[in-house]
Design a protein around this nucleic acid. Structure first.
Lengths: 145, 145
DNA sequence: ATAAGAAGTAGACTCAGTCTCATGTTTGAC
DNA sequence: GTCAAACATGAGACTGAGTCTACTTCTTAT
């Protein structure tokens, strides 16, 4: 997650007809740093901490646009706050484990799970499956001890 | 989903040390009707529609207690609103498909998916998996056409 | 360089969910 | 049955995420 992703994202946005802007750039740069699953509020706060004024609306608008182009993944872990993370073009599909005690969010991958869900999606004709989220709730090592 | 579930839920609550109360009873009765995945606001509204005054706090408190005893399942479909549904004691574990266009929530079951997740949970030592949610996003038949 | 319109800002607004506290009920003890 | 302690309840204030609005500032095509 890095400079290439920034360029890639900007290119996709331009191709999609969006103009460039400083706020969006700042949000994209932050996401590129790859801190897993930030909330919109965290993003706003961190951009401001860098000394840039940024409107809440700009943050949400940017995230919405990026999500539309599948450049970020929105993730609902059930604490009433959505989280966002940069998505690489070629896959990197993963899910999340949430510690219900401390709130920590941990990513994981599982090809078998992907296959199972793909098969399931084929089997359901009344529904066109697009995205899917698997959220495992539980306790992380530290909280369990 | 019916009268037995109401009695079962009340018995469990009593055993857990809770006293009885009219508001909680009303919420439980509504859940027992089995309308899939209601929001807290819908529950409050429907209880009021029956002519009973009920405080928002009572609804949320009841749902929290029921969730703690695994008598209801809380479900996050990602529209910023939690949904709740009665859970039968002996299983009936299911997941949900959400139509991102019209917001409709449809339940589904899949034993293969359950097995896959159970295997996955065993394989992850750093995390004690408790509950899991699988939410498939997509489009329902009507919206797709 | 300029004008059209997208992008940005601040902050008011909405709405789900939480908290508080005075009041109403339940229950166990007598 | 009566009583009091303790739990349950209701109204509404409060919080915090996310949306909307009105207005300003840039980008970009010409």
């Amino acid at each position: 997650m890095s400079a290439e992703w920034i360029e890639y994202a900007e290119a996709r946005l331009t191709k999609a007809g969006y103009r460039r802007g400083a706020s969006r750039r700042a949000v994209i740069e932050l996401l590129a740093e790859g801190h897993c699953a930030m909330t919109a509020a965290e993003i706003e706060e961190r951009v401001r901490a860098e000394g840039r004024a940024v409107g809440r609306a700009s943050v949400y608008r940017t995230l919405e646009q990026l999500e539309e182009l599948h450049l970020v993944t929105r993730l609902d872990v059930g604490q009433g706050t959505a989280r966002y993370e940069a998505a690489l073009p070629g896959g990197d599909h993963h899910h999340h484990m949430v510690c219900d005690t401390c709130g920590k969010v941990e990513p994981f991958e599982d090809p078998e799970l992907e296959r199972t869900i793909a098969r399931l999606a084929d089997r359901v004709p009344a529904f066109t499956v697009g995205e899917h989220d698997v959220v495992l709730h539980g306790e992380c090592e530290r909280c369990a001890s």
